[in-house]
């Protein structure tokens, strides 16, 4: 029993880290920005936090804040040129950003350790710290939904021309989304760095980009519960159904195709829409 629980703990921690990264992807998608930059932000945050904590002895909370700030600044800088682009062009440009960060991490050996990466990092983050950080982020995401920013994002995503005709300054909101995505991605990367003992540039390449995107597609990109559910399902599924672990890639692929074709809103938002429609049907039948 104790063995089972202790095997669950690292898994639970992984879910929380993945959920933070998923939020970084969620924020931009909700605002109608097709950014794939989360992996790049995570890389910057991870190296930032590792360098701050391991080389300069900066306390863990400050190192995490640093990681988030680095990501936020990167997101803001990226948003200046990228808020001019749309759709696939935006996706490809942010893909370029991820690849540039990856190759620079390989190239700048004196800073990043190059292909060997950084090893022997202190493990400064455990379960409680993760729960705390996750709680803060989740509150922030709920706040986004409750105080009107979320619905502004929703309007921009669904009908950008309508949004501008209502006086919504789309560029400003896209900058905000990029900055938030950068902050969350950087923070997620910082969490990875401070609990993984080591870092290599390839941790933050195309596979992470795909994984994070899958979390949000599966979970949903409107309700903040969506990314958490997506991250949890995809992290836990191969572990719970052990035989599936060898076919992780296959399972991911099949899930992605099925969800985007049959449940394009993702698990959580599809259920939400369904419930709303049912409530509406009930309220119409009542009078």
């Amino acid at each position: 029993m104790i063995g089972f629980v202790s095997s669950l703990q690292p898994l639970g921690e992984l879910v929380l880290v993945n959920a933070c990264l998923a939020f970084s992807q969620y924020v931009v998608l909700r605002a109608g920005v097709f950014s794939l930059a989360t992996a790049g932000f995570a890389s910057l945050g991870a190296y930032g936090a590792a360098i701050l904590a391991a080389r300069h002895g900066v306390p863990m909370p400050l190192a995490l804040v640093g990681a988030g700030l680095i990501g936020a600044v990167a997101g803001l800088v990226l948003s200046v040129p990228l808020s001019r682009l749309r759709g696939v062009y935006q996706a490809i440009a942010t893909l370029a950003f991820v690849q540039i960060v990856l190759s620079l991490a390989l190239y700048l050996e004196p800073v990043t350790g190059g292909a060997m990466g950084m090893n022997g990092l202190p493990r400064l983050i455990g379960g409680w710290e993760l729960i705390l950080v996750f709680g803060v982020i989740f509150y922030a995401m709920l706040a986004l939904s409750r105080a009107g920013i979320g619905s502004t994002f929703d309007a921009i995503r669904q009908e950008e021309t309508v949004a501008v005709s209502l006086g919504i300054r789309v560029v400003d909101y896209h900058r905000l989304a990029f900055a938030l995505s950068g902050a969350l991605g950087g923070l997620g990367g910082g969490l990875m760095a401070l609990r993984n003992y080591s870092l290599v540039p390839e941790d933050f390449g195309f596979p992470l980009l795909i994984a994070v995107l899958t979390f949000v597609v599966l979970g949903g990109r409107v309700s903040p519960v969506g990314p958490v559910v997506g991250a949890a399902v995809l992290t836990l599924l191969p572990e719970i159904a052990r035989p599936l672990a060898d076919y992780r890639l296959l399972v991911n692929g099949v899930l992605m195709v099925l969800v985007i074709i049959y449940w394009p809103h993702g698990i959580v938002d599809t259920i939400r829409l369904h419930l709303r429609q049912r409530r509406h049907a009930v309220s119409q039948a009542a009078p």
Partner: peptide
């Protein structure tokens, strides 16, 4: 186009697997 990108990534994963 968003959906098309996602589903083609999914099929790519299936083919790779």
């Amino acid at each position: 186009e968003f959906a098309a990108i996602i589903s083609s990534i999914g099929v790519a994963q299936i083919l790779m697997s």
